[in-house]
Nucleic acid binder design. Structure first.
Lengths: 193, 193
DNA sequence: ATTGCCATGTAACAAGTTACATGATTGT
DNA sequence: ACAATCATGTAACTTGTTACATGGCAAT
C-alpha cells in the first residue's frame, strides 16, 4: 500500500493505474472501449475521452490488439484482446505494491458543514444519499445474480477469470449496504431536533 | 448526486470541491494550511502543494483571512478563519446537489487480475490490505475517543461545529471494518486452493 | 547520521473532465 | 419531438501529483 513506483522496468514509460486496469479487464474478456468504460465503473470511474486514447497507446506498445467488428445500424466496434506481452507486464505488476486508495466525495463535505444550515437540509441530503445507494445496490445485486446464473461455481474458483470481478462486486454491495446503514444511523441522531 | 454545476452564481469563478472542503473545515475551527491537509485526509486526500495556493486564492476572494502566528524553533504559521462572505457561499453551496463520489483503488485492479498469477499473491495482497485498514481503524478509533472526551454531548448535536466531522469519522470506521470483513471472506474462498 | 515532524511555497508534469464532433436506432 | 443507447474520437481545460526549495528541532 505504498506509493506507485514510476518508470518501473516493466513499463518503460507512462503506464499508469488506469492502463493496468484496462489490461486487467481485457484479460478477463475481449472488450470494446465502450464496454470497458462500463465495466470499469465498478471500481474505477473513467470517461471515454480518457479510455480511447489510452487503448490506442496500449496497442502501440503491443500490450493489446484489436479487431474490427462491423455492425448493422450501429457504429463499428474495435474489440481489444490482451497480447502475450500485455499478459506479462500485467502479471509482473500484480507483484508490486498497490497505490493507496483515493476517495473524493463531495457529499461528505456537505455533511461536514451541515451545522451551518438546517437539519432539514441534512435530512434531505441523507435521503438522497440513501436513494442513490439503494439504486446502485439494486443494480449491483442484479449483476451479481447475472454472474451467478452464467458462471455459478467458477465464481469461487480463484483461477477463473470471473473470480476477481465477482469478489469486487460482493465487496461493493457490502460497502453500499453499510453506507445506507450509516445514513439511517445519522437520521436517528437528527430526529431529536 | 448530479454532476457539479460549474460557474455557479455563488462562486463567480473556479470554486471547486476542494475549495469548499477547505471552507467547510475552517468554518469548524481556525486552521493552518498544514493542519487542513491532515484534517482533510479523512475524506479528501489533497497534497499541500494544492492546498497552499488554493488558500491564497480563497483569501483573494475574501472567503478566508489569515493571521500570522510566530513560533519558537518552528516555522511561523498562517492561521486561516472563515469570513462572513465565505460563510455565505458555503451555506449556499450546501443546497446544491453533491457531485457523484469518486473512488480509485489500485488494489481492486490487482484483485481483478489475480487469477493470472498465484493464490499465494492473492493472500499476500489481502493480508497487507487487512493490515492497512486495521492500522487506519486503530488510528480512527483513537480520534473518535479523543473527540468524545473533548466534546461529549456536542457530537450528537446537529448544530455543533463538531457534529459533521464526528459523523464522518463514524462512517469511515464502519466502512473500514466492512473492508476488513470482506478481506477475511475472500481469504476463506482461497483456503480450498 | 538519518529519518520524521513542523511549516510554507513554486514549477513541471500527469491524470481526469468537459465540450466538440458524428450519426443511426430504439423507446417515451 | 426528444432523450437514451451504441460507438469512437479530439481539443481545451481543470485538477491533482511529484519534485524542487528551505530550515530548525526531536527522536532513534
Amino acid at each position: 500500500m505504498k506509493r506507485e513506483v514510476k518508470n518501473c522496468i516493466f513499463a518503460e514509460i507512462e503506464m499508469n493505474s488506469l492502463a493496468y486496469a484496462l489490461l486487467a479487464m481485457v484479460a478477463r474478456k475481449d472488450c470494446s472501449g465502450y464496454e470497458l468504460v462500463q465495466l470499469l465503473e465498478l471500481f474505477w470511474q473513467a470517461k471515454h475521452s480518457q479510455v480511447y486514447p489510452l487503448l490506442a497507446k496500449l496497442e502501440q506498445k503491443q500490450y493489446v490488439a484489436h479487431r474490427l467488428v462491423k455492425q448493422n445500424g450501429r457504429p463499428d466496434k474495435k474489440i481489444y484482446r490482451l497480447t502475450e506481452q500485455g499478459r506479462e507486464i500485467l502479471s509482473a505488476w500484480i507483484h508490486e505494491e498497490p497505490a493507496v486508495p483515493v476517495v473524493r466525495d463531495e457529499f461528505l463535505t456537505k455533511i461536514y458543514a451541515i451545522w451551518l444550515t438546517s437539519t432539514k437540509r441534512a435530512r434531505e441530503l441523507l435521503h438522497e444519499r440513501i436513494q442513490y445507494f439503494t439504486d446502485m445496490l439494486t443494480d449491483r445485486l442484479l449483476k451479481i445474480r447475472e454472474m451467478e446464473e452464467r458462471w455459478s461455481d467458477d465464481l469461487y474458483d480463484p483461477h477463473s477469470p470471473q473470480f476477481g470481478r465477482y469478489m469486487i462486486l460482493q465487496r461493493k454491495t457490502r460497502l453500499e449496504q453499510e453506507e445506507i446503514n450509516w445514513c439511517h444511523w445519522v437520521l436517528e441522531r437528527l430526529k431529536k431536533d
